[in-house]
Design a protein around this nucleic acid. Structure first.
Lengths: 152, 152
DNA sequence: CCTCTTTTTGAGAGAGCTTATCAATTTCAA
DNA sequence: TTGAAATTGATAAGCTCTCTCAAAAAGAGG
């Protein structure tokens, strides 16, 4: 049976919700209205800052505090749903479950971020890990440089 | 004529000193005792934070201000000697003249860190960057997983 | 070696992002 | 339903980094 077009996001992200619930259960944490709200908003993003999410969610819940957003996004990192990445003076929270794993090309001039995926690099990473007796769980690759526009 | 074994670092880094002097001249800036002191300390590092350099130089000059360190390291970035990279909550100033870049394998079980270098991966990174119009200045690759010991 | 203008410095105030604090509220197991 | 334990919101505090400004230093031109 196919998903109806208008089906709520919740049902399309059952895997991520299960992952969070599992983490909560294992650490004696509770599922709150705020955590559900923030999760559903987070899963629609590829990456977002706490500040941006604060403003975005202000419409749905004007009393949702910034501290709660930070706490919850950090919780997502612990649960393996998100990954924190520092750029400029802010922290970007990347959605790990979005598509396959993507890496970043980051312009040090204007801050532009281009996402990419490269199977050959991933294969070589596995090779390096195996050679050192490691089993990779996740990775982070960031290339910093100047984009075509900023080079001039 | 060969360099005597005990020759001061200053003379072994004439290229970097020239680069700085060139930048100073082009921007009507002055060569000060503090800038020389910070440069000679910086060139001995692969990467360092402003705070770390502050404590390191406190012995040589107890009155050297933290603001001066920040200003000078940012000046080095402008001159092309250093490159700022945000890691955790701090800024790492990478020494550009140190070419041998190493990446990290990090065990999520015990925290063990193994350094490695892989030319093939670096070549592929260049390829990806070029394809996207970028010129790479630096990069960061971290592989997270379990080491042989922690897997059991 | 002086003099004068411009730049730099040091110390602390201030700004921006993130975390800690704590009383009130909510969750959820019993 | 109840009560212990976790969470929240508001705000204070913390941390890193930059700005401010009077005093000091640099360096070009006498």
């Amino acid at each position: 049976m196919l998903f109806p077009a208008g089906m709520p996001t919740m049902n399309r992200n059952s895997k991520e919700i299960a992952l969070l619930k599992d983490h909560l259960a294992k650490h004696q944490l509770k599922l709150t209205r705020q955590r559900e709200l923030i999760l559903s908003a987070f899963l629609k993003q590829e990456h977002i800052t706490a500040e941006a999410m604060y403003h975005q969610l202000a419409k749905k819940d004007p009393h949702l505090g910034l501290a709660t957003i930070y706490r919850t996004l950090n919780l997502f990192c612990d649960a393996g749903l998100a990954q924190a990445r520092h750029f400029g003076s802010q922290t970007q929270y990347d959605n790990v479950s979005h598509k396959g794993h993507h890496d970043h090309l980051i312009c040090t001039g204007c801050g532009k971020i281009v996402e990419f995926e490269n199977c050959d690099i991933e294969r070589l990473q596995e090779e390096v890990a195996t050679k050192n007796g490691f089993t990779i769980q996740t990775h982070r690759l960031e290339l910093y440089g100047l984009c075509a526009h900023c080079r001039h």
